[in-house]
């Protein structure tokens, strides 16, 4: 029996609900319908009264979760699409993110953001919001790339006393499968060496990890060994693992599906250039989506985001520098 990334997210929520009476799920269509992506399939039935449909009110949904957390609950909120969290942004960054710092009362909420591009989804159902949330103090931002991490990091998100932005990639929902649910996983805050290599470090997260791994496979046949670092969470950002990898390879390419201005890839570049300049044999490079809204048509969409093809070109470029 195999389990998909999406099923792992459902299973993690089922386990959280079963193990902790403080947990409840709140969001649009999450109840009997089971969620737009079926991430809460059958949960309303299995846990009566604890998986609850909300009105289309992202601000009020997140505000409600914050209030419930203040009162000792552990809410999981599903934003139907990451893009829609823009409507609830104020509650996240001004209310949830500042609460502990202002009052010493923690705000243990988990906000699930179905994120990232899938073909045909267009400008408002495809966004990657990790950089903008990571910018604000007081938030943890998770970007799991594997079935194992989707499962364990979501459980960890619920257990963490701080607000967690859980960016689950929609492209991985069905594409990614594991044989079974994992027994344990690395803790959040530690990056993972997804593949070892000595010639070039590619730092990636979420769906881009798999594009990077495909490039590593392709270039291995040409005799180039690429090390792929999966950040797992972008905040906290495990600079040590990145730096250690760059120390081994001397070259860095950082890949993100989000837009190029600022953001996670820029942060990684700044840290490596600032703290590990002497480790570099070539100027570090990065690759992001194009600086336009995410296009609808598959021809445009495939060219908008980084893919194994464009990453391979970028990787060859860094190796030539």
């Amino acid at each position: 029996m195999s389990i998909t990334y999406l099923e792992a997210i459902r299973e993690a929520q089922a386990r959280a609900l079963a193990e902790d009476p403080r947990v409840f799920i709140y969001g649009q269509d999450v109840g009997a319908f089971g969620g737009a992506f079926k991430a809460t399939k059958n949960l309303a039935e299995e846990f009566p009264g604890r998986v609850i449909d909300s009105p289309i009110s992202e601000d009020a949904i997140i505000g409600l979760a914050i209030g419930a957390a203040i009162d000792g609950m552990r809410p999981i909120v599903e934003m139907q699409f990451a893009d829609f969290s823009a409507v609830g942004f104020n509650q996240v960054i001004n209310q949830a993110a500042t609460l502990y710092w202002r009052t010493r009362v923690p705000c243990p909420i988990t906000i699930r953001l179905p994120a990232g591009g899938t073909s045909g989804s267009g400008p408002f159902h495809s966004q990657n919001m990790e950089a903008i949330y990571a910018h604000y103090p007081g938030l943890v931002v998770m970007t799991p790339a594997t079935v194992e991490d989707a499962y364990h990091m979501l459980l960890e998100a619920v257990a963490i006393d701080d607000p967690v932005i859980f960016c689950e990639h929609k492209y991985l929902y069905y594409h990614l499968k594991a044989d079974k649910l994992p027994g344990d996983a690395m803790p959040t805050g530690k990056a993972r060496i997804a593949r070892e290599g000595r010639d070039l470090t590619i730092v990636a997260y979420s769906a881009m990890v798999h594009e990077a791994l495909a490039v590593a496979e392709e270039l291995a046949s040409e005799g180039t060994e690429i090390e792929v670092v999966d950040l797992r969470s972008v905040k906290p950002l495990d600079t040590d693992t990145v730096m250690a990898s760059v120390a081994r390879t001397g070259r860095l390419l950082c890949v993100g599906e989000a837009w190029p201005w600022g953001g996670v890839t820029a942060e990684v570049m700044a840290r490596v250039a600032g703290e590990g300049f002497g480790l570099l044999d070539a100027p570090p490079q990065r690759l992001n989506a194009k600086d336009t809204p995410v296009p609808y048509h598959p021809n445009l969409w495939a060219a908008h985001r980084p893919t194994a093809r464009s990453i391979a070109t970028a990787a060859r470029n860094v190796l030539r520098l």
Binding site: D59, A60, I61, I62, G63, L64, A65, I66, G67, A68, A69, I70, D71, P75, N90, Q91, N94, Q95
Partner: peptide
């Protein structure tokens, strides 16, 4: 934004 937080506690 505070009204929704009150809602949350009542909820």
């Amino acid at each position: 934004a505070m009204i929704a937080v009150v809602n949350g506690i009542l909820f």
